[in-house]
Amino acid sequence: MKVSSPKFILTLAVGLAVILGIMMTAFSLPAVNSGVNNVPVGVVTTDKTVYNKFATPLEKKGFDVKQYKSVSSMKDAVNDRKVYGAFEISNTGDMTLYKATAASTAVSQALETMGNAVVAQQKTAAKAQIAQMQAQATDATMLKALDAKVQAIDAKTLTVKELKAFPKADPKGTGLAAGALPIALGGWIGAVAIANTVKGKKQKFWAAIAFAFVGGLGLVGVIQFVVGTFNGNYFLTSLGAMLGIAATGFFVLGLLEVMGNAGLGIAAVLLILLGNPLSGLSSAPEMLPKGWGFFGQLLPPGATGSLLRNLTFFDGHAIGLSAGVLAAYVIVGLVLFFLGHKSEIQNAEKA
């Protein structure tokens, strides 16, 4: 009876340890070092001095701040996915936050927290000045007027206006955030199932097409009609999901045809171990460590998630990168699929 050699066992143990290390790095490092890393936001004001006053603390917090002269131009920038939201500063110093929760719940919450903190600082500074005036005032009318100013300051709050919200059924977009793993794992499992159950190369090709078509309709159907995260054009959003599933499916099938079962490991690392935590769906690509978020958008889970988000909530704006990435995976996968012959060789050996 043939048994495994000590060299093989040691090599396997080292390989598995490397995979565990990759898993730990991919899941823990972004979580530990996540935060604001050049998240683009806007400040709406025509006054350059006012802009600099509010932009400087935002930049120190890690935001990439852009100035807009009007609310309409800022709203266009939000819809074009150039910024996640913006602060408008009125002539009296009042602050309004325009946020797009559908772009990122985490960024939306961070902006609201920071806006409230700025308003609180403004109120503290203004009340301190009035307190000095109250200490020096002796006239009852003046004291009454100062008391009224304090009450007016206390009443000031951050005005929040929502530009792009998730549906009421899922106001935090939990369904989309939780979809990273099904997007990555589902495509991988589907491709493996096709590779192992469908006979014939042409038949595998058409099975992958059918899986992408039906899977795209099913994935968006669950997110939109069961979970309630999406509320856009069902068929248009489904086309994006179909492209994402096709990218994953053909990439896995291509690796299998060229490398055999070893390709499954590479696909699992790229699509699941790296693609899932680096997708940015639970926060935003700019909230992952520098460079990691962009890399995550070059992997199918991140690209698919961004494509679905932008198709559903942002009128199809800024889909070029994600659609291009997914199309590239489809093309590369098809080239590998038609060049490789591993399945034919395995079928010949079994025969």
Rank of each mutant, 00 (worst) to 15 (best):
A145E: 06
S104F: 04
S90C: 08
D80C: 00
N38D: 15
M24R: 14
V119Q: 02
A247E: 03
M1Y: 06
E344W: 12
A246H: 01
D315S: 08
K172G: 08
W188I: 08
K350C: 02
G215P: 00
S73P: 05
T46Q: 15
A323F: 10
G249M: 02
A131E: 14
V269T: 11
M24F: 14
E286I: 05
G249P: 02
L298G: 11
L217Q: 04
F250R: 13
A125I: 03
F205M: 03
M95P: 01
G265P: 01
G173P: 10
L239E: 03
V107G: 10
L270T: 05
D80Y: 12
K48L: 15
G275A: 12
V119C: 02
A31N: 14
V18A: 11
G216L: 06
L158R: 04
T174M: 14
G175V: 11
T49I: 11
L16D: 01
M133D: 00
G42E: 09
I272V: 11
I89E: 10
G333K: 13
T174I: 14
I272R: 05
Q121Y: 02
V335E: 01
V192N: 04
Q203F: 13
M133P: 00
G175E: 12
S306Q: 15
G316F: 12
A17S: 09
P301V: 09
I319F: 04
K290F: 12
P300T: 07
N37A: 12
P182D: 14
Y51V: 13
T92W: 07
V118L: 11
V83P: 04
L217W: 03
M287L: 08
I331K: 11
T304L: 09
F205I: 01
V227D: 06
L243M: 03
G263I: 08
Q203M: 10
A145V: 01
D80L: 10
A267N: 10
G249F: 02
S306L: 13
I331F: 14
I194K: 08
G305C: 08
V214G: 03
G216I: 03
T304A: 14
Y329T: 07
V44C: 08
W292A: 12
T113P: 01
P289L: 13
K290G: 04
T312L: 02
L321Q: 05
K149D: 00
N261S: 15
G216V: 09
G254C: 11
T124L: 15
A13T: 10
R81S: 13
M287C: 10
F225K: 06
V335S: 04
L163Y: 09
A165Q: 13
